[in-house]
């Protein structure tokens, strides 16, 4: 069954079609969330929230964008909302984020200098850089995803990359 058919069936209330559809995108959303948060436990939590929110809002999906982009939008907004609510706990989140280094290294993968720099960036800058340089979205698209102006996105990408470049030069 094609993705379009699955979406149509899911929108008509078929939970099995929805489960199949969401499972097909699960790895992509999880991968995105892991790169965005750099925090494995927060990732799992937010991926689950994204799936449930997608179920609640499926009737609003109009097919104008790819289904994966729609899920990325939901995931990003959930993360930014979570950050707003957890301002006090940001430090705790950052400390917990160190777990990812352990996971990367125990899986015989490389924890690079660039990863360290990415982790130290403010989350909003990291999100803008990730969406721009890894997922290849245009500035207006990122602005729509992050619910801010195009100028803000440009400045986040600029200052974020400048920060990484500066830190790398110093090391």
């Amino acid at each position: 069954m094609s993705e379009q058919q699955l979406i149509q069936q899911a929108q008509q209330g078929n939970t099995e079609a929805l489960a199949l559809l969401l499972r097909q995108h699960y790895a992509m959303v999880r991968g995105y969330m892991l790169k965005l948060t750099m925090n494995p436990s927060l990732t799992d939590d937010l991926v689950q929230d994204t799936m449930l929110r997608a179920m609640e809002k499926l009737h609003t999906y109009n097919g104008k964008s790819k289904f994966s982009s729609w899920l990325i939008t939901i995931a990003t907004r959930l993360y930014l909302d979570r950050l707003k609510r957890m301002k006090v706990e940001r430090r705790w989140l950052e400390q917990e984020g160190r777990l990812i280094r352990y996971q990367v290294e125990t899986n015989q993968l490389e924890w690079s200098e660039a990863m360290e720099m990415l982790q130290q960036l403010p989350p909003e800058q990291r999100a803008a850089i990730l969406l721009k340089h890894y997922y290849g979205y245009a500035y207006p698209e990122i602005a729509a995803i992050m619910q801010c102006s195009e100028g803000t996105v440009k400045s986040r990408v600029h200052y974020g990359t400048e920060q990484i470049r500066k830190e790398m030069k110093e090391q």
Binding site: A27, R30, G31, L34, K35, M38, I100, Q103, V104, N107, L109, E110, W111, S112, E113, A114, M115, L118, I129, L130, H133, Y134, I164, M168
Partner: peptide, 15 residues
Amino acid sequence: KLLNSWNQLDQLNER
């Protein structure tokens, strides 16, 4: 360098 880092995280995700 950033792409390489993200690819490492993708590999972690696949596992």
